[in-house]
Amino acid sequence: MTPLIEAVAVSKRFAGGLGRESTLALEGLSLAISAERPAIIAVVGESGSGKTTLARLLLGLADPTGGEVRYRGEDLRRLGRNKWRAFRRDVQAVFQDPYGVYNPFYRVDHVLATPVRRFGLAASRAAGRELIAEVLRAVGLRPEEILGRYPHQLSGGQRQRVMVARALLPKPKLIVADEPVSMVDASLRATILAALRQLTDEHGISILYITHDLATAYQVSDAILVLYRARLVEAGAVERVVRAPQHPYTQLLVAAVPRAHQARDWIEEGYEAPHNGGGMISDGCPFADRCAHATSLCAVAPPLYRTEVRRVVACVLYREYPTLAARELGRWLSI
């Protein structure tokens, strides 16, 4: 079946002006979101790993410099007017900052009523109000406590849930959520993430959950992609990747999460060597300069090795396994 959204070996390079080197933000990434089987896919990486660039490419907010993003099989750049409109309804976004998106002079209703009007989602005012109440309830909010208020009268968690509710209005198939809970108080994160999980399980909406927080990704998602300096290093079912990470970077990442219910060896084991994060990305493995296993083989970018049924690792440590062409990754993972 044709996926709803598919990234086929997409790359994004930002040109450097005035003799500056260009910056590689994303290199050869593939990803597919099924139109039939809703799931939460997490994209995890540190700042500068390319995860927000991926979100912008999938939302059509930026054009890839290599590869293509397809909506129901068609390149986003070649969508006709009607298809583009359908894409705009099917794919919604929730961004990081639940403060910046509101106009403080308008009531919260405004941010919800606008898409109803623009997309012509309701036949009458009353139907529009009912639709808005419905999406608010879907994210666990009571409409009577939200509507008629100004943004500053809501908590950060409420504001972010209103943004999720807004994304639900056009009945999308996919929500791209870029760090949706990183600015929300820790105790509220669980509530918002549970609301996202419910959207997938009960409303059949897929979610691309972009985050730097491995723990929340582990809690809500089905599959996970780990990015490091513009490249995919590991991908697979979240339970396997987090429980038994295979790429040395994923191993470092999992070990770096401080855990409440484990022996207190986190500080002692925390190796201190600060790395030079802004360094040039060579043609080889992006992690080679920090990796304890690095050899001369790492001077060439490693292919994706299929170490398990639904798992790939971009590391030569696993070179006895069969490889997978990068452009195949999306569909292969979603099977």
């Binding site: 820790a186 994160r189 669980a190 993430l193 723990a215 809690q219 999992v254 219910h261």
Partner: peptide, 11 residues
């Protein structure tokens, strides 16, 4: 309430 890597699905 804090998401952990220890137990899954306990949000």
């Amino acid at each position: 309430s804090l998401p952990s890597l220890d137990v899954r699905g306990a949000l």
